[in-house]
Nucleic acid binder design. Structure first.
Lengths: 340, 340
DNA sequence: CGTCACTTTTGGAACGATCCAAGACCCGAC
DNA sequence: GTCGGGTCTTGGATCGTTCCAAAAGTGACG
């Protein structure tokens, strides 16, 4: 326990500096010396004391990530999955991931400054960015190295960010439904004004415009908006179903789940496609748009390595197909009946 | 940026050591000196370089926690919530939480040894413990400081652990149903042999024995077992429903969700109580037993502080009540009809 | 006024690694 | 033989903090 460079050096009959070079700059050593040193490292089971290294190098290679205090919210399971991906990839690069909590954006900025000045973390990952996010300018001003998961919906895109192309996702979903023969495809989303919500509606609407030639009025008649609660979605979906919609694209899995509930109530069965591909989609059993968080994580890490800032990446999501009507309430009768 | 003890010392007109004492051992200083030093600390916005401190103190106050690589699994959202709690409480104590990944238990042990020898983390939290868990003896032998979330189902309880009293939870659920007038209360669990599954059944069975005088045969007739998949649970619940069960206690929220599905298929509405109080329970809308992860986290941190090991805590869960039949499929007709 | 016991402050070494510049080594050429 | 140029190796200082033991200050008391 606690073998140091000096131990290895003594064992190999070289100086401390040589052992350090063997590990960090092997090209400097003569082959014979290198072999001998590495053998000593192996035989002693040496691994460097990262605290000492970090002190000397004045860098810690640690990513700080805020984790929300409570998670009753379904969307946050998405962030957890993202965290998994980030950790796995950071690990592979010799970086570490450190968690911290905060109950407000201001507190988050404060914690970040503290962690940075304590040299506990030197890069940060912002999640759940929103319009007018005060964290971004504060961190820019403090000279922090960070990347945001979520594009800046407001102005001033001078920082690095990664985001998923929501429109592309809903477009894929809509086209898949069109290809399957559906013609009255509804959309359930959030009230206009939320950046990602509008983006997601765009994919659906543009697909219907192009493929079916629908106009604004047609689209409006196929749209319902509500909050992200299941019950809200159930209520919002009901009128669409009455109007004869034969498939639904939703801005989230919560909305999709609520819609499935509405269909059950109405004694209908129709394909519903959600967004985020959460456990809810897998559990209830509907298709959903997967954000490909592995790719997002990889882009985020790459952006963090890039010094000057301003690296932006947009990841294309993929439709995860699942068989609908898992409950089999209406096995055959309602299937394929698409009232146009 | 990067003010050091020396800066503060110069500013306050004392030695470096005195500043260090002011922060770590204030009782040693004369009041006047202490005030002066603290004022200097404030005015310079000094915060200690934790890397240097850790190097010198040879301790890092950092808890390493494994995070599973992918999370399609519903149960793991429970671990994420636990992680939130642990992080919040660790933060408050000046400890940090570091994530790492591993794809097997052996790899996890290897990573833990590495993190410890690199002095990146010095205490660890094991989750998802299972019967015959090889991690525990390996870590004990390596002299690691750790605590397990999950009791040791096998022998040799020489390490620290925290767990939730599953039997107490299902007993509360069962008694609540009895109090509400239900008499044919079924149980859906996993095949016998899983420690926590058996524990959860025990709470249900003992309540029915005591309150209704049921015997083994009665209980067996009210029990169904299956895997933790929704579809399995739907299939397993159906025969129980046919047999006239009028309420269900389940070993997990997945099982409960599947049972709700079975009830929908059967055109029935009955109270179902799940376990873990996950987003699934909140989303679908059934009561569930909450593990009180805040208390678990607090006990785990306390156990980590306690040196010799062997601290064990059992947390009592609480029933989280929700109104069932949210979908309102059968608003009145089927309500209260309990075919005995 | 010196001594003693006690409180308060301080200098120097150490933690374990890396940076920098200088020293040792090697080999061929003058 | 030694000198030059390149390759390989090394000593010493350093990162910012805390440990340790010794020094300085304080006040009471004979």
């Amino acid at each position: 326990m606690a073998t140091t460079l000096a131990d290895v050096a003594a064992h190999a009959g070289v100086s401390v500096q040589t052992v350090s070079n063997a590990l960090n700059n092997p090209a400097l050593l003569k082959q014979a010396t290198l072999d001998r040193v590495l053998a000593a490292v192996d035989s002693l089971g040496y691994s460097p004391n990262l605290q000492a290294r970090r002190l000397r190098r004045r860098t810690v290679a640690t990513i700080g990530v805020r984790i929300e205090p409570t998670t009753d919210n379904i969307a946050s399971s998405l962030l957890d999955r993202f965290l998994h991906e980030v950790t796995a990839q950071a690990d592979a690069q010799g970086q570490h991931v450190l968690l911290f909590t905060a109950t407000s954006d201001e507190e988050e900025v404060g914690k970040i400054r503290e962690l940075a000045s304590q040299q506990v973390a030197d890069r940060f990952l912002l999640t759940s960015t929103h319009a007018g996010d005060a964290r971004v300018p504060a961190l820019l001003e403090a000279g922090m190295r960070f990347v945001a998961f979520g594009r800046p919906w407001g102005p001033a895109p001078t920082h690095s960010w990664v985001d998923v192309d929501g429109a592309s996702g809903t477009r894929q979903a809509t086209e898949a439904l069109l290809d399957a023969g559906h013609r009255r495809i509804g959309f359930i989303g959030w009230p206009a004004g939320s950046g990602s919500g509008d983006d997601r509606r765009l994919g659906w609407s543009s697909a219907l415009r192009e493929r079916l030639g629908l106009d604004d009025a047609d689209l409006a008649a196929l749209t319902a908006v509500c909050g992200d609660q299941l019950q809200d979605a159930t209520d919002a979906a009901a009128p669409l179903l009455e109007r004869g919609v034969d498939a639904l694209v939703c801005a989230s899995d919560s909305l999709a789940t609520g819609s499935v509930g509405a269909a059950l109530q109405a004694g209908r069965s129709l394909p519903v496609i959600g967004f985020d591909n959460t456990a809810l989609a897998a559990g209830v059993g509907f298709s959903s748009i997967d954000q490909c968080l592995g790719e997002v994580a990889s882009a985020a890490l790459a952006a963090l390595d890039h010094e000057p800032g301003g690296v932006t990446t947009i990841v294309r999501p993929r439709l995860m197909r699942r068989q609908h009507d898992r409950w089999g309430i209406l096995p055959a009768a309602d299937r394929g009946q698409s009232p146009t």
